[in-house]
């Protein structure tokens, strides 16, 4: 590293840099034993901890709706929401608890539930849903392990305020039940 860059490095406060890093990585994880930088939300599952940006006064980006302001667009957002709901139906099994950290569920089970929610070509629906699981995993809403064929809730789910979960619980109770006997990895 040149002297000039060493100089500029000293200019950025380490706490500021840690929070900027958490934002740019959007929910990166580290071992629980590593120190958590101050001023970020730490969502832990006991083994690892995911670092997320914190917002003032309990606000969430949903606040934009009140101001008629569009959030970052999401392609096929309806489908993404339905696949997220299908995944939560399988991973958030004790609905009275918080959705995070939830449990790992077989991807096959999620695809089954999603298939039961949608009309039309079942094979096509599964293919769409598989792509959607990847996008939801890229954005931290789910944690997808394609090799093991399992999916879990993502750390961003931990940011949902508890008092906003009621309607979501009601919705999930109305979704088709996950199939019994589908084993992870099969």
């Amino acid at each position: 590293m040149s002297k000039a860059s060493a100089e500029s490095k000293a200019d950025v406060d380490p706490g500021v840099l840690a929070r900027a890093r958490a934002r740019v990585l959007g929910g990166a994880s580290q071992a629980v034993t590593e120190p958590t930088p101050p001023g970020v939300v730490a969502a832990s599952d006991g083994e690892r901890v995911w670092l997320l940006s914190a917002w003032p006064d309990g606000a969430t980006p949903a606040l934009l709706e009140e101001y008629d302001t569009a959030p970052m667009p999401l392609d096929r957002s309806g489908q993404a929401r339905r696949v997220l709901a299908a995944a939560l139906r399988c991973c958030w099994t004790r609905l009275d608890d918080a959705p995070w950290p939830g449990e790992a569920a077989p991807v096959q089970a999620v695809l089954e539930v999603y298939g039961g929610m949608s009309r039309g070509d079942a094979e096509l629906a599964r293919r769409w849903a598989t792509g959607e699981l990847r996008r939801l995993s890229d954005t931290g809403w789910l944690l997808l392990d394609e090799a093991a064929g399992v999916v879990r809730p993502g750390p961003r789910v931990a940011l949902w305020p508890d008092d906003s979960l009621g309607p979501l619980r009601d919705l999930l109770r109305r979704l088709p039940e996950p199939p019994q006997g589908v084993i992870a990895g099969e």
């Binding site: 606000a59 980006p61 606040l63 934009l64 008629d68």
Partner: peptide, 24 residues
């Protein structure tokens, strides 16, 4: 005032496009 500041902060951070100051 506090909620106006929080709204402005969330808007510039999370809106897809720049936000008009007339609204915030």
């Amino acid at each position: 005032r506090r909620s106006e500041l929080v709204a402005a902060y969330m808007a510039v951070e999370h809106a897809a496009e720049p936000v008009p100051e007339a609204r915030f």
